[in-house]
Design a protein around this nucleic acid. Structure first.
Lengths: 245, 245
DNA sequence: CGCAGCCTTGACCATTATCAACGCTGGTGG
DNA sequence: CCACCAGCGTTGATAATGGTCAAGGCTGCG
């Protein structure tokens, strides 16, 4: 049974934002003006799943049988080199999709960071629905293009920014991706460990820790707890992030 | 007037590969099984343009009036930080598209590396054609997903690979993107300067130069000229690229 | 032939990684 | 209820990869 409702008040609220309580189709309803008929049909294919922290959604090289739509929690998406070096290519939160880019096999692994709830679609079924629904396809294209733009920004970060600029950028952008917001306007929730932040930013855990300490010492932020940071001077942090000297 | 023909013999030939001599619509005909009707209509919107080396196709922030389809030559796509640091997010060659990811404004700059010929489409016209042609839209989605996968690989390179691994990866992948092939199987054409290679790989020109010299000294490759490299030991290079210790 | 631009090579330096020790924190079991 | 332990995070000392600065060489063009 499909049911569209507003996001709970502790979530990011953006214009026209709706979430399907069953399959978390926020992404589609946002960017595609998806009709009720499409939403209902999509909903019919969905299968709800819960995963504990640490469990894998996909593994690099596995046949891509399912696509996923995250309903709650957070997920790390990454690729590994032969010797175990890891690059986290993105974090996913409620409303995000996983698997759209996959061909026959996944080119990446994905694991739950926190306990996660999601909707699972058989890839073949999903694809045939997409093929019949132009508005859905347009929405997916739009979404892919946004992800591509984000990927290009991440290349700038990884290729040309200093450690401090990477951390500043990360702290400023994370909240806009994660609809689960803690207390205040400038509070950043960090569901991921230091090691995951490091592997996302192309750094080591020690460097992440040191830079956070330095930013704290400079009065730009406060470490409310290990997993919660309060940005005290957003403007200054933004200047750091962009390398405005 | 539309005319579909095989790629010239000095180009990469892949299964089913065709190129529209007027608009270079290789990409679309390859991945989308685009019908003649769509191709013809696409062709009707195209406007041929030639650019000398160094000229800009787009600038970051400019309104996105046109989309481009490269017919010959090569293009650098990049983003800049405030202080001038540059990250090249990709090189484009014959058959590649530019501007699909753009919203109202370009989020990147693009400049000709060599003299370039291209087809230009008014973005609004192109979009309305896409909206009416499901097969075209599907082809674009497919293409966007491939680019996204490539972007993730580049994140691994930028975030976690050593200078030597980056160069090795670059030399192995470049020929598969560039249909203009020089002499032999293992010859890599480098239309771009050392500075552009550096900005693509997140390195400096000195490091690029030193690593190439080292690989030459180790007998893995030969610098036929400044812009042409012969890979002597592809297998060894591949091992380096993947960090197989 | 000479100049400009790019590339290479060398010497030195700095940022970040590595290695190591310590501390905090949350959970468990005595 | 407290103590201990495991795991993660922080801090410090040292090392190394790659960057910076500088000089010299090659190449193509006027």
């Amino acid at each position: 049974m499909i049911e569209i409702k507003s996001l709970p008040t502790n979530c990011a609220v953006r214009p026209n934002e709706q979430i399907c309580s069953n399959c978390g189709a926020r992404a589609l309803s946002v960017c595609g003006a998806l009709g009720d008929a499409d939403l209902a049909r999509l909903d019919g294919l969905a299968e709800r799943v819960s995963l504990p922290a640490g469990d894998a959604l996909t593994r690099e090289g596995d046949p891509a049988r399912y696509l996923y739509n995250i309903t709650s929690g957070s997920v790390r998406v990454f690729k590994l080199l032969a010797d175990g070096r890891r690059q986290i290519t993105g974090f996913l939160f409620a409303g995000d999709f996983l698997g759209l880019t996959a061909g026959e096999a996944f080119a990446f692994s994905a694991e739950a960071i926190e306990p996660v709830t999601l909707c699972r679609f058989k890839r073949a079924e999903y694809r045939s629905l997409v093929r019949e629904s132009p508005s859905l396809e347009a929405a997916l294209l739009d979404r892919a293009n946004h992800e591509l733009a984000a990927a290009h920004n991440q290349m700038v970060l990884l290729g040309r920014k200093t450690a401090q600029e990477r951390i500043a950028t990360f702290l400023l952008e994370l909240p806009s991706k994660d609809p689960a917001r803690p207390g205040g306007e400038n509070t950043v929730r960090l569901p991921m460990s230091r090691s995951e932040i490091a592997d996302y930013l192309g750094l080591t855990i020690e460097t992440v820790s040191r830079v956070l300490t330095r930013l704290k010492t400079q009065g730009l932020l406060r470490l409310a707890s290990l997993n919660e940071i309060v940005v005290l001077k957003p403007a200054a942090l933004r200047r750091l992030a962009e390398g405005d000297v």
